[in-house]
């Protein structure tokens, strides 16, 4: 039985390679050595590369933080979120307004952006999640658009021009203003995000999410409060996005409504789905693809979104679990 299964798998050469790699990394020593090597390479990276590549890598880390937050909602809880850029905007604008208008220290603005995101998450999530999970998709889509319109029309957010003059964060007496500073800052954030994601996944809440995703009715029958658990996922994910937004504002020092379009929400979602929803290595891989493909293949320019849309369709039709391979024995509903 096991014999035939292996044979069937090996007919796809790509799958064969991945399987071999997986078996190799099942040995924990190799795995830790590999991860250690990657981390060391990434730490010394800024000393050996141009500002441009550092910028791209910083962007990649930033994507990893945002997408891991989105992954809590989409991957863990199985809810489609189409307005993630809006929560990201909530964080960015909270920091932006507090720092440029009221002159507040950057680090002190972060709790405020978390609170703002939680309020927004409750306002959107509580009425919607009470009903059906899939209403959330379209309500978040609407919320994304509405947030952008609101930012554009209000005075305190600087209207269509946006906010300028957001203060740089200061850490241990050093003002963070070099690209390498932000490289390290987002690198640390990405590692933190990965750590938090793993802890959440293994927590009691994480297991409840997985159960709900696989079989909502059975989970409810086992005494899990489906609505509350989903709401937690939605709010925690939103707070994640808001923190990333705060750091984004600090890095850019200027933000405008154009940074928070529907397209950005779609790109985040793309990264989560492409690599494999709910799987942290999968999400990281998805981010690498989404950030690096447009940089490597500059020629695709205007066709980028069309290609990504087609890719998304193909992934959903033929490999819904994403590019990153599944661990065996996970069966989907029906």
């Amino acid at each position: 039985m096991a014999e035939t299964k292996k044979k069937a798998k090996l007919t796809n050469p790509f799958e064969g390679i991945v399987e071999t790699l997986f078996r190799f990394f099942e040995n924990k020593t190799y795995l830790y050595l590999f991860i250690g090597a990657v981390v060391i390479l990434l730490v010394i990276f800024p000393n050996t590369s141009s500002r441009f590549t550092q910028e791209i890598m910083t962007n990649l880390f930033f994507y990893i933080v945002v997408c891991l937050g989105l992954n809590i909602i989409v991957g863990y809880a199985g809810l489609l979120h189409l307005g993630y850029a809006a929560f990201f905007a909530v964080g960015a604008y909270t920091t932006g307004i507090l720092s440029s208008v009221f002159g507040m220290n950057f680090w002190l603005t972060i709790p405020f952006s978390i609170v703002a995101a939680v309020i927004a998450g409750l306002a959107i999530g509580a009425p919607t999640l009470r009903l059906r999970g899939d209403y959330l998709a379209i309500v978040t889509l609407g919320f994304g658009e509405i947030t952008r319109l609101t930012i554009r029309n209000l005075d305190i957010t600087g209207g269509a021009i946006g906010l300028i003059g957001i203060q740089r964060p200061v850490l241990f007496g050093i003002t963070l203003n070099q690209i390498s500073h932000f490289y390290y800052m987002f690198f640390i954030l990405a590692i933190l995000a990965i750590f938090v994601s793993y802890r959440l996944h293994d927590s009691r809440m994480g297991r409840a999410w997985e159960y709900i995703r696989e079989d909502e009715d059975a989970a409810a029958a086992m005494g899990i409060n489906v609505t509350t658990s989903r709401l937690y996922a939605f709010i925690i994910g939103s707070a994640f996005g808001a923190v990333a937004g705060s750091f984004f504002a600090a890095k850019m020092t200027a933000i405008s409504p154009d940074s928070f379009m529907f397209i950005h929400s779609v790109m985040f979602l793309m990264a989560v789905v492409l690599g494999g929803m709910g799987k942290i290595p999968g999400v990281v891989l998805g981010c690498v693809l989404v950030v690096l493909i447009p940089e490597v293949a500059r020629g695709i320019g205007p066709y980028r979104l069309l290609i990504f849309g087609a890719l998304l369709l193909i992934i959903m039709l033929y490999r819904p679990q994403g590019i990153w391979p599944d661990r065996p024995a996970i069966s989907s509903k029906e």
Partner: peptide
């Protein structure tokens, strides 16, 4: 149609993908 038996999340994402394809084709 291939997604009718798949989890709900998959068919929603498929719908989004279709929307992206239509929208970007006309945009181009």
């Amino acid at each position: 149609r291939p997604m009718l038996k798949a989890p709900r999340l998959s068919i929603l994402i498929t719908a989004l993908a279709v929307s992206m394809i239509l929208y970007n084709t006309v945009m181009l």
